[in-house]
Write a protein that binds this DNA or RNA. Structure first.
Length: 940
RNA sequence: GCCUUGGUGGCGGAAUUGGUAGACGCGCAGGACUUAAAAUCCUGUGACCAUUAUGGUCGUGCCGGUUCGAUCCCGGCCCGAGGUACCA
């Protein structure tokens, strides 16, 4: 590589030998355990956490460490400010890619995972992070997943009491059942028929267990699940993106299966409420709010004509009940079988068959297409007593509400489309303020009105929507045909995966009933299998394990836990990683409490960040942890995009044309490896060599160069735009990498990576070095007393840097450092009094070079143990200010005036300035605005 | 469609959120040093019009408003990114 050759030459003469320095200090930190952290009751704690990575085979690219660098800077800054900082790292090591790879190659996922982790660690180590590696966790290790299994068992052994609004031990529930049956129990549970204490006592063990299973927070039940045939497993809602699996992009279908689920929906309201006080971005909170999806409305009963069946529906708009002209059931709804008439049976069966075949993606693809079938049954509108037809249609979802709706075609666009298609009446019941009711047959779409007043609605007529909703609910409750109800979109989390590489469930089956294994038998280790595929009879891979049974011969559960299991409480494990008696000791938990700063990608908004909040709340209910929320402050780092380069090949030839002239030819843009392009100029020889096309011809630009085009795209191998941090560290050093990643732009914004700008940061370090050493390597630093100007530069920078770090504005700190070094260089300042504090404030960003220079100044202890310099206002206060003088808001000239000058004197001084004459044009100013310390504006 | 964001030089981005628009860096152009290259240093660099210097006009996606003053606040539109999508 050309650039590398140049670099080698550079190094010979270069004073700042980053390579030697960085290796030296990384070794020093490791040997001295500089970043080891222990509980210290005398110091305030601060917990800084990165979302731990899944160790993929591809290794890290330059985008991954962005958040790690930011959190590392923050950790170091907090340490310098006297905090005891917990800053750990580990690996989310269970997961699908390793297993898919295992299926293809036969290589055990534990082996590939171990290798990948090694690679990750090497890459991380090169960047100089201040992690306490003694606290590392790996989710795939038995000593770690013991606690994942343990937490699951606790969920199995608890139920959710809606009255106390928390999880309680299942024993307590059994006591209640024995005393008074289940009548008074207000639990989050699956549908369970009522029983008395007498009934309970008469039930067999199996019956009792079956009933209890409906109440457990971790329960086994027939559920509609996302089944991914290609992966051979079910997936949680957040693992399905646009009807395809998040990993691999395979189609997903809906299927009813017996699956383990976590009753996360019981926590929906608390997940919503407790978010209020979190320091998360509004957008992230909003994503989570939408995902939880609270809606307020009513549950209502509709009688079926000539039948005992009563349809229960959920609506947010009970005010529009007078506008209901038909009803719709989800295809999966149990009501369908109950009410379909003999005449319609065949047609309905056909329809159900048809919808079953469609995948989620198909269903989502043609949302606009109307389909459905009449069941032959009629319901009675409880407000109008009208007979209305009941349909089955797949636009109604089984999983939401009750799987049945009252259709209000006048005011809901889906119902409207359906009504038009099946020629059903469309009554208008809401009118926009200031308008008259109109003939709905002339409408193009429904009026989905959240505001307006009621018409054709009996006792609701004339009310506005808000009042009408309240009045309608009042009437519904009075009539006893329904009640106020809050619904959530958030589903219980499907917790089983029919896969190998995950945590085994600590359960066995006896007589078809799941029983927990003894807690002292944890962890239940993942057994060996001959292949990582399902068994011949369709059992999950664990079905292949030989003698995978309890000592009494009972079979274990064959599914494993999903990816989010291991990541839901890892932040507690870091507090006390070696503890084999508890997830986390009371002492460690009460000291570290929760994560003060969490940095990671926004892609976890609906998965990890919901699950771990739920998991935490459950542990909180059990009294095991002391904080309601796990992550106090959260920052989403932006994505680093790739910057791809292109060459333009003239179609049908081996000729390439430079960017400037490409429009004169018919040509195709082809990705070119950015390693052979420098500042968009192509290295022609390297290109010939790389493509193996020695005869390639080029049409060059007027400078005799080949200029490439560029575009911002996702960083990916296929686009030849992946930049590896190792290469950057090799060429420029870790400090430059760290600093440049921060310099790219605001942390939370996504931005393209362009290595071209990195020279500026590299130059900055060389300039810094030259403040300490002359060209011959002599230390220049002296003990002379600092001048006012020098102190001003220093303190201005101290102030700016602490402010920026506290606001996570790291890009502007880098500028501030550059300005500081430029100014100190101009003053030829080599004074210890200035440079020592300067090193400290720079050290969070560039730990290696600062450590080296710090030692060179004769300091015996690591700079990590020093104290952040105190900002002193006195050094930066000015007695005068150079005021910009504007006329009608446009700046015309500047004038220096004392800051304590009275306003009227300033005014006089400005007006009498000779430069004002021109702008006043002989007129007297209409108005003069004087803002002390800011500006003078004259209105002419 | 809905929600959340963002739109500033050739490029990444500043502007202490109502007070000098374009800090800092890259790139580019010119110069110094050098046998030469690299490195380093200096100067210039939003557009346009004038010009010996000086100077002027326009300019933060577009259109309007509030204000002495708007990148920042308000109303309307256009474009990009992310999330979500039959949620009743």
């Amino acid at each position: 590589m050309q650039t590398f050759k140049i670099f080698k030459k550079k190094l010979k003469k270069m004073e700042y030998n980053f390579r030697e320095i960085e290796q030296k200090w990384q070794k020093f930190w490791k040997e001295n355990k500089t970043y080891k952290v222990e509980i210290d009751e005398n110091l305030p704690k601060f917990y800084v956490l990165d979302m731990f990575p899944y160790p993929s085979g591809a290794g890290l690219h330059v985008g991954h460490p962005l958040g790690y660098i930011a959190s590392d800077i923050y950790s170091r800054y907090k340490r310098l400010n006297g905090f005891n900082v917990l800053h750990p790292m580990g690996y989310d090591a269970f997961g699908l890619p390793a297993e898919q790879y295992a299926i293809q190659t036969g290589q055990h996922p534990a082996v590939t995972t171990e290798n990948n982790i090694k690679r990750y660690r090497e890459q991380l180590d090169k960047i100089g992070f201040s992690y306490d590696w003694d606290r590392e966790v790996r989710t795939c290790e038995p000593s770690y997943y013991k606690w994942t299994q343990w937490a699951f068992l606790q969920m199995f052994k608890h139920w959710y009491n809606k009255t106390s609004d928390k999880a309680e031990p299942i024993e307590k529930l059994i006591e209640i059942f024995a005393k008074e049956g289940n009548k008074s129990v207000n639990a989050a549970c699956n549908e369970t028929s009522a029983f008395t204490a007498e009934d309970w006592k008469g039930f067999s063990e199996k019956q009792k267990e079956e009933i209890l299973l409906n109440y457990r927070l971790a329960y086994l039940a027939d559920t509609m699940v996302n089944w991914c045939p290609a992966l051979g497993t079910v997936l949680a809602n957040d693992e399905v993106v646009n009807g395809l699996s998040e990993r691999g992009g395979h189609p997903v279908v809906q299927k009813e299966m017996k699956q383990w689920s976590l009753r996360i929906s019981a926590y929906a309201q608390r997940l919503l409420d407790d978010m209020e006080n979190l320091e998360w971005s509004d957008s992230l909170k909003e994503i989570q709010r939408n995902w939880i999806g609270r809606s307020q409305g009513a549950e209502m009963l509709f009688k079926i004509k000539n039948s005992d069946v009563v349809l229960e529906i959920f609506t947010t708009r009970p005010d529009t009940t007078f506008g209901v002209s038909f009803m719709v059931l989800a295809p999966e709804s149990a009501y369908v079988q109950q009410i379909t008439t003999v005449e319609c049976k065949q047609a309905v069966e056909n329809y159900l068959e048809e919808t079953k075949k469609r995948s989620e993606r198909d269903r989502m693809a043609d949302v606009k297409k109307v389909s459905g079938e009449f069941t032959g049954a009629y319901a009675i509108n409880p407000f109008t007593n009208a007979e209305i037809p009941v349909y089955v249609a797949d636009y109604v979802l089984a999983g939401y509400g009750t799987g049945a709706i009252m259709a209000v075609p006048g005011h809901d666009s889906r119902d409207f489309r359906f009504a038009r298609h099946f020629e059903l009446p469309i009554p208008q019941v809401v009118v926009e303020k200031g308008k008259e009711p109109s003939d709905t047959s002339s409408w193009d779409d429904s009026f989905d009105a959240k505001e307006g007043f009621m018409v054709n609605s009996g006792f609701l007529n004339g009310m506005d929507v808000k009042d009408a909703i309240a009045a309608a609910i009042g009437e519904i409750e009075k009539k006893g045909i329904g009640k106020r109800k809050i619904n959530f979109r958030l589903r219980d989390a499907i917790f089983s995966r029919q896969r190998y590489w995950g945590e085994p469930f600590p359960l066995y089956f006896k007589d078809g009933i799941p029983y927990p294994i003894n807690e002292n038998e944890l962890p239940l280790e993942l057994p060996e299998v001959d292949k990582f595929l399902p068994t011949e009879d369709g059992q999950p891979p664990l079905g292949r394990a030989e003698n995978w049974k309890t000592k009494d011969g009972y079979s274990y559960e064959l599914s494993t836990m999903p990816g989010f299991a291991g990541s839901s409480a890892y932040y507690y494990r870091y507090m006390d990683p070696k503890n084999d008696k508890a997830l986390v000791s009371k002492q460690a938990n009460e000291y570290w409490r929760n994560v003060d700063l969490y940095i990671g990608g926004t892609e976890h908004a609906t998965g990890h960040l919901v699950y771990s909040r739920y998991w935490n709340k459950f542990l909180y209910d059990m009294g095991l942890v002391c904080e309601k929320e796990p992550f106090k402050k959260l920052i989403n780092q932006g994505m680093i995009q790739g910057r791809s380069n292109f060459v333009y090949r003239i179609n049908g030839t081996g000729k390439y044309v430079s960017l400037e002239q490409k429009d004169n030819y018919e040509c195709s843009a082809i990705h070119v490896d950015l390693n052979i392009v420098s500042n968009d100029i192509l290295d022609l020889d390297a290109f010939k060599k790389l493509t193996g096309n020695e005869k390639a011809e080029f049409i060059l630009n007027e400078n005799g160069e080949y200029k490439c085009g560029w575009e911002v795209e996702k960083m990916s191998k296929s686009k030849y735009n992946v930049v590896n941090p190792d290469d950057i560290v090799e060429q420029y050093g870790a400090d430059t990498l760290r600093m440049y990643e921060m310099f790219l732009g605001p942390l939370e914004q996504s931005k393209p990576w362009d290595t071209n700008g990195i020279d500026g940061v590299f130059k900055f370090f060389r300039k810094t070095w030259r403040l300490f050493y002359d060209q011959d390597g002599n230390l220049l630093v002296n003990n002379n007393v600092a001048e006012k100007a020098e102190l001003k530069i220093l303190h201005k920078t101290i102030k700016k840097i602490s402010r920026d770090i506290e606001q996570f504005s790291f890009n502007t700190s880098v500028s501030a450092f550059m300005i500081c070094v430029n100014e100190l260089g101009d003053l030829k300042c080599n004074k210890r009094e200035i440079l020592e504090p300067f090193l400290i404030i720079l050290s969070p960003f560039a730990p290696h070079i600062t450590e080296e220079l710090w030692a060179a100044l004769g300091n015996k202890e690591s700079i990590v143990k020093s104290k952040f310099p105190e900002f002193k206002e006195e050094f930066v206060t000015e007695s005068s200010f150079e005021y910009p003088v504007s006329f009608n808001g446009k700046m015309r000239f500047k004038i220096e005036m004392p800051l304590d000058m009275p306003k009227d004197e300033m005014e006089k001084m400005v007006i009498s300035d000779e430069r004002s004459v021109k702008w006043l044009e002989g007129k007297a100013p209409k108005k003069v605005i004087v803002v002390p310390g800011k500006i003078v504006n004259i209105v002419v």
